[in-house]
Design a protein around this nucleic acid. Sequence first.
DNA 1: GTGGTCTAGACCACC
DNA 2: GTGGTCTAGACCACA
Lengths: 129, 129, 129, 129
Amino acid sequence: MQFKEKQSIYQQIAEYMYEQVLGGKWPDDTRIPSIRDMAVQMEVNPNTITRTYTLLQDQGIIYNQRGIGYFTTAHASEVARVQKKQEFIQTFLPEVFKTMASLNMPVEELEALYRDYMTQNKGRLYENK
Amino acid sequence: MQFKEKQSIYQQIAEYMYEQVLGGKWPDDTRIPSIRDMAVQMEVNPNTITRTYTLLQDQGIIYNQRGIGYFTTAHASEVARVQKKQEFIQTFLPEVFKTMASLNMPVEELEALYRDYMTQNKGRLYENK
Amino acid sequence: MQFKEKQSIYQQIAEYMYEQVLGGKWPDDTRIPSIRDMAVQMEVNPNTITRTYTLLQDQGIIYNQRGIGYFTTAHASEVARVQKKQEFIQTFLPEVFKTMASLNMPVEELEALYRDYMTQNKGRLYENK
Amino acid sequence: MQFKEKQSIYQQIAEYMYEQVLGGKWPDDTRIPSIRDMAVQMEVNPNTITRTYTLLQDQGIIYNQRGIGYFTTAHASEVARVQKKQEFIQTFLPEVFKTMASLNMPVEELEALYRDYMTQNKGRLYENK
DNA sequence: GTGGTCTAGACCACC
DNA sequence: GTGGTCTAGACCACA
C-alpha cells in the first residue's frame, strides 16, 4: 500500500479498514487479519497496526478476543456508516460550502464535477487492493 | 482566535488571511498588519506569524517592503481565487466524492445540505470574528 | 459464561470455582467436572481449563486421580477461606482504603453502600448462573 | 518509582497522575512536566509516557498545546474525582462486598481494618515523591 | 524546546 | 498462534 504524506500512516490504514467495513469486504462479526499479518500486508511495523486497531476498537468498530484475534463488532458497518456520515456532515461539508461561497462557485458546478468524477471512477470504487 | 486541533496554527492563520483577501477586507495592494500586531491580535507567538507571512509571500499573495511592512500584491485577490479553486477541485473534492460514494449519499442530498447551509448562513459569511 | 476484559479467563474460572467451594456447592472431597465437561460448560478451550485446574491444584484446593478425575481436597473449603481472606486483607483492602482517602470518602459512606448492596443481593448470592 | 508487576507501567503512571490532581499537587489549568521530563523523572521510555498522556487526554484530565506542552484541564480535579468515584463504586466495591459475603466477614471487621489502616498511614498519604 | 510518529526488536501472558 | 507492553533510537513538523 502506498501512503500519502499529509496523513499519518496509522490513520490511513484506519481509512482503509473503514472502506473494508463499509464496502462489505469485512462483514459484521467476522475475524480480521491479525496484527502481524496486517503488518506484513501493509508493509509496516506491527506497532503501527496496533495503533490503528486500538483506535478502531475505541470507536467500537472492532473488538478483541484474548489470544484469538480481532473481530468486527456485531454492528460494525452500521456504526461506521453513522460515524463517518456525521463527521462528514458536521466537520467536512461546512468547509466545502464555505470554500464554495468564498469562490462564488454555484452548486451546479459542484454537481457537474460530481458527475465527472463518478463516470471516471465507475466500477473502480472498492476494487482496490 | 480559537484554533482547531488538527491543523497547524500557522495554516489556520493563512486560511484567515485568504478570507480577508477573498472577502474584500484586504483590497489589492494595501498594507496589512505587521507581524507583531498580528501576533498580538491572534494571541500567538510572532514566529508563527512569520511562518504564515512567508508562506503567503511565496504564493504571491503578499509582499514585503523592508522596514515598512507587508502589503497585498496588485493581484492578490485574483491569485488567491485561482489558487484556492485549484486546490479545492484537485485535492479536496475527490475526498468529498469518495466519501459520498462510500456512504451511498446521492448528489441530491448534497444539494439539499448546501441549501440548508446557505440559508442558515445568509449574510453571515465574512462577518467573521 | 460472560467474561470481563481485565482479568484473564482462567483466573475468572478459578474465581468461579472458589465460589463453588466456599458456597458449599462443591463439598470437601468430592468429584468435580472433568476438564472437558468444564470446557463445554464454560464455552472455552480445554487448555484454559487445564490451566485453571493446575492453579487450584497448586493451591491445595483440588487434586487429581489419574484416569479418574479431579476432586476437591479434604480441607478444600477451609484452605480456600483462609487463602482468600489473606489475599483480601493484604492486597485488596489497602487499595480500597487508599482510594477512599483520595476521594475523601468517609467510612460511613462505605457502610451505607455495603448495606445497599446486601439488601439488593439478599438471597441471590451464590445462586450463580 | 518502583513498579508493581500486575499493572502495566503506563497505567501506574496514570494512577500517579490522578493522585497529583486529586491531591492538589497539580492544580487545574497548569502546565505539567513535558513528556521527556516525565520520562526522566519516572526512569522510563518517553513512549511510555506518551501512552499515559494520551490516555489522560482522552479522559479529559489533561490537554495539549501545540509545541508548548501538556496542561491540566480547567476542571481536571473535578473530572478526576467524579470518574474515580464512579469507577470505585461501580466496579471495585461490588468485588469487595462479594468477597466479604463469601468470607462471612461482618462490616464491623471492615471498619476496624479501616481504622487500623488510617492510624498507620496518618499524614503519610500524598506526601510521596 | 515541544509532541507525533515510526521502526526494529524484544519479552510476556494468554488461548 | 494471539495481542500487550516496553525499550532504544530516530526523524519530523511545529511554536
